[in-house]
């Protein structure tokens, strides 16, 4: 199991345990994390699982592919540490990952 913390825009933290191999979007939807929609089901087609990755975790993730970069270009409140969390596949190396949620998905 991998521990992830989702921090809402209001600053409220929720720690969940997710199975390895799941995406951070799937884990969020499974645990009813408000603020992650995942409308397209994880195929980089909607941009509604946007997160800001905490601190040094940004550099420890595999970099976004072309499709993800294309979608991130359209997202409100995008920052250099923005990711679509359907593309963050959880493994033991990501145990302790912290993700911040934007004010809302668009």
């Amino acid at each position: 199991m991998v521990k992830i913390t989702y921090i809402s825009h209001a600053g409220e933290a929720r720690l969940v345990e997710a199975a390895s191999g799941q995406s951070a979007m799937e884990a969020a939807v499974h645990h009813n994390i408000a603020g992650i929609d995942g409308d397209c089901g994880g195929v980089i087609a909607c941009g509604t699982c946007h997160v800001h990755v905490d601190g040094t975790w940004t550099d420890r993730l595999a970099p976004p592919g072309e499709k993800e970069r294309d979608m991130l270009a359209y997202i409100d409140n995008a920052r250099p540490n923005s990711r679509l969390c359907c593309q963050i596949v959880l493994g033991e190396e990501l145990d302790g990952l912290v993700l911040h949620l934007p004010i809302a998905q668009h």
Binding site: D37, C40, A45, C46, D70
Partner: peptide, 20 residues
């Protein structure tokens, strides 16, 4: 369940801008 998973807004870079 998963009612948001529909095609009405389109998907990809031309996805509906005014959906929200």
């Amino acid at each position: 369940p998963r009612a948001r998973h529909h095609l009405s807004f389109g998907f990809g870079i031309h996805r509906c801008l005014g959906n929200r």
